[in-house]
C-alpha cells in the first residue's frame, strides 16, 4: 500500500464571523515528517493547528487526519494525537506528576500504567525531581517541557506543537529542540508552528509559509532558500543616509537589493564581491555583514516585510 498522508487538507477554510482566519489551504504531511507552519501572528497557523487537532471544525474544505474525518471521528483521531498548545494550560490544582497521570486517564489508560508512563516522561523531559511539586513555581521552560511530556503520554502518532519555544530563553530552547529531535528520530511525526526562522531550519523537513490565511510558499528550508533567495546576503548599515536612498544607488548590485528601515540587504551569489561593489557605488557603510541566506530572507521576500510579533 502506498504511504497514505497522515494529514491531508484541500481547500481548508476557517471563518469566525466575517473574519477569514484560514483561506483555502492544501496540505499533505507524510508519516515521520517534521512539518512546519511559518508565519507572523495572525497568519492562520494556530487556527489551522486547532482544526488538525480536531477541537475546531473546518468551515469549508476537506480535512483527513490519520485517514479519518474530524467531524465524525474526533475522539478516535484525538486518541492518537499529542498536543502542545501555544499557551500552557497545565492544571494548576494538580502536582507535576498528577498532571500527567490525570491526562493519561483521559486516553483511557489504567492508573498503574499511567503512573509508570508519567515517571518515564518526567525523566525524558528532566523534571523527575519536581514530580511531587505544584506546577505554578516551575519556570517557563519547565512548564513547556511538562506540556510536551503531557502531549506524549498516549504515545501519539502525531505531535502538534504550537510555537513550542516562544518566550523561552536560549538554553531552554536548545534543550527543547534536542528533545524534539529525539522524538523525530524515533519516527514521531511532528507538526509545529513557529515564527522563529532558526527553529524552522533546525527542526523542519518541510514547511509552508503562511500569510493572511494563505500558503505563500512551501518546500524544504533549503529549497525555499534556493528558490526565493540567494546563497549569500550582505547586510549594510549606514550612518546618515536613509536605507531607501542608498538602495536606489545600489540598484544592480547582486541579484536584488532590499531596503529595510534600519539597513540595506543585498542578495548575491558571492557576498564579498557584492560588498565590494556596494562600497564603490554608494556611501561608505557603517557596518558590513556577509552571511548565508536564511528563512528570514525568504520570508522577507515573500511577504515584503519584517516579522512582527
Amino acid at each position: 500500500m502506498a504511504e497514505q498522508p497522515l494529514i491531508f487538507a484541500r481547500g481548508l477554510v476557517k471563518r469566525f464571523g466575517d473574519f477569514t482566519a484560514v483561506d483555502g489551504i492544501d496540505l499533505s504531511v507524510a508519516p515521520g515528517e517534521a512539518f512546519g507552519f511559518l508565519g507572523p501572528n495572525g497568519a492562520g497557523k494556530s487556527s489551522t493547528m486547532r482544526m488538525i487537532g480536531c477541537v475546531s471544525l473546518p468551515t469549508a474544505g476537506e480535512l483527513r487526519i490519520l485517514g479519518m474525518d474530524p467531524a465524525r471521528q474526533g475522539p478516535a483521531i484525538r486518541a492518537r494525537l499529542g498536543v502542545c498548545p501555544q499557551l500552557d494550560n497545565l492544571d494548576p490544582d494538580l502536582t507535576v506528576e498528577e498532571n500527567l497521570i490525570t491526562y493519561a486517564r483521559y486516553f483511557g489508560m489504567p492508573r498503574g500504567l499511567a503512573r509508570r508512563r508519567a515517571a518515564e516522561l518526567l525523566e525524558f523531559v528532566r523534571l523527575a525531581d519536581r514530580a511531587g511539586g505544584k506546577v505554578e513555581p516551575l519556570s517557563g521552560g519547565m512548564k513547556r517541557r511538562l506540556t510536551i511530556a503531557r502531549a506524549l503520554v498516549n504515545e501519539p502518532d502525531i505531535v502538534l506543537l504550537d510555537e513550542p519555544t516562544t518566550g523561552l530563553d536560549p538554553q531552554a530552547r536548545h534543550l527543547l529542540w534536542e528533545r524534539l529531535f529525539q522524538l523525530k528520530r524515533r519516527g514521531v511525526t511532528l507538526v509545529l508552528t513557529t515564527h522563529y526562522m532558526d527553529e524552522a531550519e533546525q527542526l523542519c523537513d518541510r514547511l509552508v509559509v503562511m500569510d493572511g490565511g494563505r500558503i505563500v510558499a512551501q518546500g524544504s528550508p533549503r529549497a525555499l532558500i534556493a528558490e526565493h533567495s540567494t546563497p549569500e546576503v550582505v547586510e549594510l548599515r549606514y550612518g546618515q543616509e536613509s536605507p531607501a536612498e542608498v538602495a536606489v544607488k545600489l540598484a544592480g548590485v547582486g541579484r536584488r537589493v532590499d531596503a529595510l528601515p534600519d539597513r540595506v540587504l543585498v542578495y548575491a551569489e558571492d557576498g564579498d564581491a557584492a560588498a565590494a561593489q556596494a562600497h564603490e557605488r554608494g556611501p561608505a557603510p557603517a557596518s558590513v555583514l556577509v552571511r548565508r541566506s536564511t528563512l528570514e530572507d525568504v520570508f522577507l521576500h515573500l511577504t515584503g516585510r519584517t516579522l512582527v510579533d
Partner: peptide, 14 residues
C-alpha cells in the same frame, strides 16, 4: 481562567 478544559478537549474526551 484555568483553561483546564481546553487541555482536556485535546484528548478523546468530548
Amino acid at each position: 481562567y484555568g483553561r483546564t478544559f481546553e487541555a482536556v478537549l485535546a484528548t478523546p474526551v468530548r
